[in-house]
Amino acid sequence: MFLQTKGLTKQFGGLVAVNKVDFTVEKGKINAIIGPNGAGKTTFFNLISGFHPPSAGQVIFKGRDITHLPPDQIARLGIARTFQTTHLFEQSTVLDNVIVGHRLRTSSTLWDAIFRTARHQREEKQCRDKALDVLDFVGLTDAADRLVAGLTQEAKKRAAFALALATDPEVVFLDEPAAGVNPDETDGLAELIRKMVERGVTVCLIEHKMQMIMNLADKIMVLNFGEKIAEGTPHEIMNNEDVIRAYLGGNAIA
């Protein structure tokens, strides 16, 4: 079992945002989570990545219970994520934004910084090389020295992917990777996501663009009002009556 949630639940006050969700992220596959707005998808991500402590249930990664670990430690175990908004620093170059992504694999301290120790030189180079490597992977080599502010939305998404990949993850959680990106570019991002899996990184994503998901995903879970209502291959999901009802029942897909 690679990554698994057992009865994962989150309550905000009286509201149950995620309700007893059992889910398995399969290694080497593209796993997707869909559902109407407010179905608890992002909250589900926040629970796995340690941003919110769950009210009940467990998250297990490679046999280890990571339910109550803080986000930074979860990241160090090899679980990366992106946000709906990229959170990149606009006034800085793409490369500068991505270099810090590999920081968690280094151990330089303040001492190393002030006295420019050999370790610091080595690790700085290591971070830079990593950044150039992942930028090359996402196809942003040419944009490395440009300010993020001048990038298209699609390029920003690629930069955010690069940042996540710079942490050397085993699994990446992508929160609406194609939001705000036009259809042509969406295909490009889908291609990139496939490439990530080929490189050995497991992917789990939330997406609203149905066509993209159905073509891309190996496995889909559908959430509605915080509960899992279906799980299966794209084909199974498309023909699932509960899913169709959830989507037609007033909560249109955004």
Binding site: S49, G50, F51, P70, P71, D72, Q73, A75, R76, A80, R81, F83, H87, L88, F89, S92, D96, I99, V100, G101, R103, L104, C127, L163, A164, A166, T167
Partner: peptide, 18 residues
Amino acid sequence: RTFMAIRNSEDLALTLGI
């Protein structure tokens, strides 16, 4: 760089294992 990552977005910094 770590400091600046925190300035930029603390949430993002956390997901980067900082």
